[in-house]
Computed example of a mutant assay.
Amino acid sequence: MKILFSPSETKNSGGEQKSFDKNSLIFGELFDKRLEIINSYNDFIKIASKEELEKLFGTKKADILQKYKTDIFKSSTMKAILRYEGVAYDYLQYANLEKKAQKYIDDNVLIFSNLFGVLKADDEIPDYKLKQGETFDDLKIEKFYSDNFSQALDEYLKDEDVLDLRAGFYEKFYTIKKPYLTMKFIKDGKVVSHFAKAYRGEILKLIAQNSINSFDELMNLEIKSLKVEEIKEQKLKKEIVYSIN
Rank of each mutant, 00 (worst) to 15 (best):
I203Y: 00
V118P: 07
I141F: 09
F169H: 05
K190Q: 07
M78D: 06
V162H: 02
T10N: 15
K79E: 15
K172Q: 10
E36K: 14
E29M: 05
S75I: 14
I203L: 05
A101R: 02
F215N: 12
A196H: 03
K74F: 10
F195S: 09
S40K: 03
Y242A: 09
K158W: 04
G15M: 09
V87H: 04
E230A: 11
Q102L: 02
D216A: 15
K33V: 11
F116S: 13
L53D: 10
G15H: 11
A196S: 15
D106Q: 11
K55H: 11
Y84S: 05
K22S: 14
Q102P: 01
S24I: 03
V192A: 05
I38A: 05
D147S: 15
Y128H: 07
K60V: 13
L204Q: 01
T70Q: 07
K2Q: 12
S146G: 09
K131Q: 12
I231E: 09
D71S: 11
S225Y: 15
L218P: 00
D138K: 12
E36R: 10
N12V: 11
V192Y: 01
Y145P: 00
T70P: 00
K69S: 14
Q102M: 05
S8I: 08
S214G: 05
L153E: 02
K60W: 02
Q234T: 15
I212A: 00
L157W: 03
E230W: 00
K172L: 07
F136H: 01
I3C: 04
L30A: 08
E29F: 10
I207N: 01
Q17P: 14
I45S: 00
M1P: 11
Y104A: 10
I207Y: 00
E124P: 01
F136W: 02
I111S: 07
K120N: 14
Y68E: 14
L130Q: 13
E155Q: 12
K187M: 04
S113I: 09
I125Y: 05
K143W: 02
D216C: 07
E160M: 08
S193Y: 02
S19D: 03
S146A: 11
Y84D: 06
L157D: 02
A152P: 04
Y174T: 08
T135Q: 07
L53I: 13
L35E: 09
A167R: 07
L4D: 05
V241W: 01
Q102C: 08
L92R: 04
L30I: 11
A95Q: 13
Q66P: 00
I240T: 01
P126M: 06
F5P: 00
K69Q: 13
D138I: 05
E9S: 09
K55I: 12
G201L: 04
K129C: 14
K158P: 08
G117T: 04
E202F: 15
E16M: 12
D127Y: 04
K232D: 15
M183P: 04
E134R: 13
P126V: 06
Y145M: 03
D122S: 14
L56I: 10
E239C: 14
F112Q: 01
S225G: 08
L204I: 08
T175H: 08
V162Q: 04
K99D: 15
Y180H: 13
I111G: 04
K187Q: 10
I207A: 02
S214T: 10
F5E: 02
K131Y: 06
S6G: 12
Y94S: 03
T135E: 11
E51T: 11
D188T: 07
L30S: 10
Q93P: 04
K79Y: 13
S214E: 06
F20P: 09
K238I: 11
F169M: 08
K178Y: 09
